[in-house]
């Protein structure tokens, strides 16, 4: 699955995107996946330390942390929007 990081997620993790093989995505929630990512190293742990500001989109549709990842081909992590 394609994993995208925007704004300070990208800065902290040190890359804009990566490809991660997911097994059991039909049972895996966004929250489970965040937990896995946070265990990958310092940058990840810092990026995901405050779950209140971790926003997520599956295939460009914003979802909450309890959503099952299922057949999505792209997941994006980003802070609250500040455009306009």
């Amino acid at each position: 699955m394609k994993v995208l990081y925007f704004a300070w997620f990208r800065d902290r993790i040190g890359m804009a995107e990566e490809e991660i093989d997911l097994t059991g995505a039909d049972k895996l929630t966004v929250r489970d996946f965040i937990h896995d990512l946070a265990g990958r190293g310092d940058g990840y742990a810092t990026a995901f330390e405050d779950m209140n500001v971790v926003h997520v989109a599956l295939d460009m549709q914003e979802v909450d942390h309890d959503t099952i990842i299922g057949g999505a081909s792209e997941i994006a992590f980003y802070p609250p929007f500040t455009g306009g």
Partner: peptide, 23 residues
């Protein structure tokens, strides 16, 4: 709505360095 529901993020740069704007 576009300020809070569309995926855009602002980063400010100035004499004190760079910082992402908070919502």
């Amino acid at each position: 709505w576009l300020k809070t529901k569309a995926p855009f993020w602002k980063k400010e740069s100035g004499p004190e360095g760079d910082s992402w704007v908070s919502s």
